[in-house]
Amino acid sequence: MNTTLETPALLLDEARMMRNVARMQSRMDQLGVAFRPHVKTSKCVEVVKRQMAAGSRGITVSTLKEAEEFFCAGINDILYAVGIVPNKLDHALKLIRDGLRLTLLLESVAMAEQVARHGAEHGVCYDVMIEIDTDGHRSGVKPDDPVLLQIAAALQGGARLKGVMTHAGASYDCNTPEALQAMAEQERSRCVAAATLLRNGGHTCEVVSVGSTPTALSAQHLDGVTEVRAGVYIFFDMVMADVGVCTIDEIAISVLCTVIGHQPDQGWVITDGGWMAMSRDLGRDHHGYGMVCDGDGQPVPELGFGKANQEHGVLQWRREPGVDITQRFPVGSSLRILPNHACATAAQHGSYHVIPQNGGDWPVWPRFNGW
């Protein structure tokens, strides 16, 4: 363990991450689909380079800033997988004029008309995907809704329909292999049905894009699908462990913190890693702000993390009331916290301190935030 780091610090276990990369890419290759990872989890060029080297075909982003950063890093095929709105069209236009193959997402006739009009006015033809709601989790058009044909019809002149896209976010609520497989099949079949409706209506629909980490790792087949997207698999987290698609020892990031004090009468160990270091995402709520591990990353189940202030983590000793926590966890000792939600925790930090898979000095990989 590197004990010279100022804490809290975001650690990345490179060996675990590379195993996660290989696992997902191998599965996509076996299923015969292209893989377009969602890079909002890492927002890190060094991480994404490794995903691309493993065989990914393009990337998925959640902000135009991500699109710009990764385009500058040499990635030229990007899906912006959040519904486009008018005040972002000029930014998208600039990226396209600079040479980026950018695909936009929308879910309404009104926005389809605006995108097509904006493209025609500025002499470009936007590639557009229609978002499909396959699980009632978030946004999108129902796969059998006739408005799909109206949206496609509005994509004329300055826009063209490239395909359909869905995200089975409801898979995060599953926790058995059978439920995950059923959700993966629901996601696949309903997105394919939307593509079929469009094709039967006379519209080209070349791309059928599905994805979430749980469904990508649970699908039994992907007939009719052309690409899969997944993001959190790169690091995994406690929610994914609870869902059942990873184990604790596959989680690649953790927050290193330092014990700064105690409240022995309360059974509390106080650290410098509060919710600003972890995020306020409580996941499924039974891990508190994350799973506590020792400095080497081994879980310490006796310590709960149910209370946090902005810069203070308050860990609760939950076993053997006679244990002297001041001796067991002395001031200055290191602990590591496995995050509930890797994307949210990583967003609290400006860089990764990388535990290299081949030993040696620990490099620092920058990441970015914002929009």
Rank of each mutant, 00 (worst) to 15 (best):
Ser209Gln: 09
His349Val: 12
Met129Asn: 06
Gly74Ser: 13
Thr4Gly: 11
Val207Gln: 12
Val48Phe: 08
Gly274Lys: 14
Ser171Pro: 04
Pro177His: 00
His167Asp: 00
Arg229Thr: 12
Val323Gly: 08
Asp13Glu: 05
Arg284Pro: 09
Arg138Trp: 08
Gly359Val: 03
Leu198Pro: 06
Val239Arg: 07
Ala22Pro: 01
His312Asn: 13
Thr215Ile: 05
His221Trp: 08
Gly140Phe: 11
Asp294Gln: 01
Ala179Thr: 05
His38Ser: 03
Val259Cys: 07
Asp324Thr: 14
Phe329Pro: 05
Gly58Ser: 10
Pro356Ser: 13
Asp135Gln: 04
Gly267Leu: 09
Ala252Met: 01
Met24His: 07
Ala308Arg: 09
Asp173Ser: 13
Leu282Trp: 00
Cys174Tyr: 06
Ser212Met: 08
Phe329Cys: 05
Gln348Trp: 04
Met28Ala: 02
Pro37Cys: 10
His122Met: 13
Ile130Leu: 11
Arg328Ala: 14
Leu155Gly: 00
Phe329Gln: 06
Val47Asp: 11
Gly74Asn: 14
Val331Gly: 04
Asp324Tyr: 08
Leu93Thr: 08
Pro299Gln: 02
Arg138Asn: 01
Val124Met: 01
Val47Trp: 02
Gly136Ser: 04
Lys65Val: 03
Trp371Glu: 15
Pro8Asn: 02
Tyr172Thr: 00
Phe35Asn: 12
Leu79Pro: 10
Val48Asp: 11
Ala241Ile: 08
Pro143Met: 03
Val147Arg: 04
Asp296Arg: 02
His167Glu: 07
Gly274Glu: 14
Leu222Gln: 07
Cys72Val: 15
Thr63Gly: 10
Val354Trp: 12
Ser254Tyr: 09
Gly360Val: 03
Val115Tyr: 08
Asp296Ala: 01
Pro143Trp: 03
Ala67Tyr: 02
Ala92Tyr: 13
Thr103Met: 06
Gly99Met: 08
Asn2Lys: 15
Met18Val: 13
Arg190Trp: 01
Gln220Glu: 05
His341Ala: 12
Ala9Trp: 03
Leu148Tyr: 11
Ser279His: 01
Val128Thr: 05
Ser139Trp: 14
Gly288Leu: 07
Thr213Val: 11
Asp145Asn: 13
Gln266Trp: 12
Val45Met: 00
Thr345Ile: 11
Lys162Met: 15
Met276Lys: 10
Val141Tyr: 04
Cys343Glu: 10
Val239Met: 14
Trp275Val: 11
His312Phe: 14
Pro301Trp: 05
Gly360Thr: 03
Cys72Ser: 15
Asp285His: 15
Gly224Tyr: 02
Ala241Ser: 10
Tyr172Arg: 10
Glu206Asp: 14
Gly322Gln: 14
Ile355Lys: 12
Val61Leu: 11
Thr271Glu: 04
